[in-house]
Nucleic acid binder design. Structure first.
Lengths: 131, 131
DNA sequence: ATTATATGTCATGTAACCTAACATGTCAAT
DNA sequence: ATTGACATGTTAGGTTACATGACATATAAT
């Protein structure tokens, strides 16, 4: 088993993730609802989060603090991802993307520098792994 | 937060620990009952295990496979530990220890080499941390 | 002013966990 | 062979943690 597997291993119940991320259950579920994360489920349908999921939630939190909205965060998160998103509705989603993108860029203009490197405090949890 | 903290952080519900260790809930609770592990609890009294706990359970499993009994395992596990055990009943416990120790040694004589280095497969989980 | 977004709160159902008790298989001592 | 200790299985009844859905609300965008 390698790091990649370990990172994506479903381990944490939502209660733990709440403490690790200081997000409410409502928020976490909401972000899943909007496809920012995709935690696995137990056979009884309860969410099980991996280290990757938690890391991602920490990123989401950062971006929220910076004033980004869900749509914007989705774009940023999917940026460095070898997508997995359903590309079924590419046509209609691309027009949404454009619209949202403009909003983000506008926001970026109003608060310059916020986008830079996002101060990725990803790594808080990354330290659980080899460095 | 350092590695030590991370390792002792209460994170896992018993269901996860069962999968990670391939032990039954009954076994895990039994080992706690006999003070081989000391998982924390939620405010609602549910067990929460740390990486250390899981590592320890894997060691316990190894020792059991080698034919050791709980008393023997306890001795071995406490060996490299800056104790934390209540030393209240030192007198009576020492006489128990002696008795058990004899049994263990007897067992050891019957299966030589089993004690060597115990093939410490601790590290299965250790890889979650820095190396 | 209206709408959209993000989150809080409440109600209700179920999954996962808890302890306690009793049952069982294995082994060692009698 | 019988007894007893050990480790684990199993069952029962109770509690905690998590599920979804609906409605409320504050803030921000239009």
């Amino acid at each position: 088993m390698n790091d990649k597997d370990r990172r994506s291993m479903p381990l944490f119940a939502i209660g733990i993730v709440m403490k690790l991320t200081e997000l409410t259950a409502r928020q976490i579920r909401y972000y899943e609802e909007h496809s920012l994360i995709h935690p696995e489920r137990t056979t009884g349908n309860q969410r099980l989060f991996s280290f990757n999921d938690v890391d991602r939630l920490l990123e989401i939190k950062d971006y929220l603090d910076k004033g980004l909205n869900i749509a914007g965060i989705k774009l940023l998160l999917n940026e460095d991802e070898t997508k997995q998103v359903s590309q079924l509705k590419m046509t209609e989603s691309s027009q949404i993307s454009d619209k949202e993108l403009r909003r983000i860029l506008r926001q970026e203009l109003n608060e310059p520098g916020a986008h830079k490197k996002a101060n990725l405090r990803q790594g808080d949890l990354a330290r659980f792994f080899s460095r």
